[in-house]
């Protein structure tokens, strides 16, 4: 009696792996799509980045030289 290289279990496991791969690829596509929409939808994207930026404080006077 020889060992079979392919078992029903291998087929099922492969199906599960392919299914998971497709789900993950779909998720990547959705996050990418959402990112593109959020970035291009026109909301202000600038924020404080360790340095004070008076120009993004609502109502603040423009800095000298502006």
């Amino acid at each position: 009696m020889s060992l079979r290289a392919e078992h029903e279990l291998h087929r099922r496991r492969a199906g599960r792996n392919i299914g998971l791969a497709l789900v993950l690829l779909g998720f990547i596509a959705i996050v990418f799509g959402l990112t593109v929409v959020k970035v291009t939808s026109g909301n202000p994207m600038q924020a404080f980045d360790h340095v004070s930026r008076p120009e993004i404080i609502p109502g603040a006077a423009p800095a000298q030289g502006d």
Binding site: M1, S2, L3, H7, L9, R12, R13, G15, R16, I18, G19, L20
Partner: peptide, 15 residues
Amino acid sequence: DASINTQTIQPEAGF
């Protein structure tokens, strides 16, 4: 080999 094949394999869930 024969003794390996007689062991019951737990059914694994499919996707």
